[in-house]
Simulated assay, not measured.
Amino acid sequence: MTADTSLDVAIIGGGVAGLWILNLLCKQGRSAMLFESDAIGGGQSIASQGIIHGGLKYALDLKLGQASAALADMPGLWRDCLQGKGAIDLRGCRIAAEHHLFWVRKSLTSRIAGFFGARMLRGRVDALESAEWPSVLRDPEHVGAVYRLDEIVLDVPSLLRALAEPWRDHIRQVPGDFTLERDAAGNVVALRYGDGRFVQAKQFVFTAGAGNAQALRQLGQPADAAQTRPLHMLLMRDAPGLLHAHCFDSSDKPRVTVTSHHLGDEIVWYVGGQIAENGVMQDEAALIATAKAEFSSLLPGLDLSRCRYAGWQVDRAEGATETGAKPDGPVFRRHGNVFVAWPTKLALAPRLADAIIAELPPAKASPLPAYYSNWPQAPYAQPVWERVTWR
């Protein structure tokens, strides 16, 4: 290892958080590279529904808490980037829906109407006239109200490309296992891989989601420094129409959260919310049976006879909290010249990136070391709906 192989910053983990940090560093001219052991966005990012939350999902107890406040300005920040006016140019990202919706069951309309009409929420939520409702929600016997949220839904595969393509030469694929190498003062100076390759840098930033556990172990951190909250997501192929919406029930979480995607000429519903959280206790067949009963109860007029189904399991990795609850915002832990980071939500990746870059020591602009030029490039992850086995 020599000065000719040293980077200013090495980022480990090629999801949206790592890519966002890479973009900001490269725009500063710093010698930064991102290293991914699988595919770009292949973990939590590609499994995301792509909703840029504004926090109202976390106000289902009809209160605006810390989690809601942390997300309140995120839709505006992302919209600026999507229009080419923000810190990162995301004009190459496809917007799946300009607004996410909130639909309320008929029996609960009065409970939520006053909250969503409050002055503090003006500009963040609008009640839609029934003629503006998506066709799949036009069931006045069961749907009491539909609200339009100031939340964009992004096509995640195109988001990953928009973030990665401008800096493709700064992204390389590496094996999964590594060893941290330290100098006499205890600072990490390199990652050593089993095939003999190494990554040498002045600063290391781990944004690998569940993969951060390997770095935490080698840094001597306890296993409970991070936590996971698993989901068993549901996919419905050949769905009856486009829908991007939460369904409000009496719980403090959406009963279902639906986003729509395209597989050829067919529409695929990708379903999260309470059904996905409860689904971790079910196998795929049980999850599908539950989903059929759930949609039959929520929207009994829909014809779902042509639908085919699949499940997709994902672990949401994040910084640990004392209670095990979701952190209110992004989390990073610094260990000398090593940062281990989790955005908590896709929408909060820009905030995490700004926080970490503010902690990095200044550095002069410098070219990339030639040592990494012939390393293989990481491929892009396939969308979830192209990888499942349909039932």
Rank of each mutant, 00 (worst) to 15 (best):
P230W: 03
G92C: 10
S110L: 15
L101R: 00
Q218S: 11
G264K: 14
A310S: 12
T109I: 08
H244A: 04
S45V: 14
A347L: 06
G54T: 14
I152G: 01
D177P: 08
S130V: 15
P240D: 05
Q214G: 03
R308T: 14
D354E: 10
Q44P: 08
S366F: 05
T321G: 09
D315M: 12
D177R: 15
A341M: 07
P75R: 04
Q274E: 15
A10K: 05
F35P: 13
E322A: 10
L287M: 12
V331K: 00
I52M: 04
N23W: 04
V104E: 02
P379M: 06
G92V: 13
L25E: 11
V143I: 12
G336I: 06
A355M: 13
G279K: 00
P222H: 06
P240N: 11
R124Q: 10
A381Q: 12
S107R: 11
A72D: 07
V384T: 06
Q382N: 11
Y372P: 09
G211P: 09
P361W: 06
V340F: 02
P383W: 00
G15V: 07
D283E: 11
M236D: 00
V104F: 08
A310D: 02
A201D: 12
R105Q: 12
A310H: 01
G272H: 05
F204H: 03
F339H: 13
R306F: 02
I267G: 06
V280K: 03
A289Y: 00
L149W: 01
G65A: 09
A276V: 04
D252W: 01
L160E: 01
G76T: 07
R111Y: 07
L19V: 05
D8I: 10
R79P: 01
F248Y: 15
P369M: 02
A378C: 09
N278C: 09
V199I: 15
P350D: 07
S130L: 13
P300T: 11
H244M: 08
H335I: 13
A96P: 04
A325C: 13
Q377Y: 03
A10F: 07
A225N: 04
F178D: 05
L19Y: 01
E129S: 13
H246P: 03
G29C: 13
H142V: 10
W133R: 02
C307A: 14
K85R: 13
Y147R: 04
G29E: 09
G209Y: 07
G311I: 07
F35Q: 03
K106G: 12
G176W: 02
F339K: 08
A127Q: 13
E277F: 07
C81N: 03
G311Y: 03
A127D: 12
W20V: 15
M120W: 01
P157M: 08
A239K: 00
D238Q: 15
L71T: 01
L121F: 12
E151D: 09
L352R: 05
F248R: 08
M236Y: 04
Q66I: 08
G117M: 10
W103G: 01
I112T: 14
R138Y: 05
A185C: 10
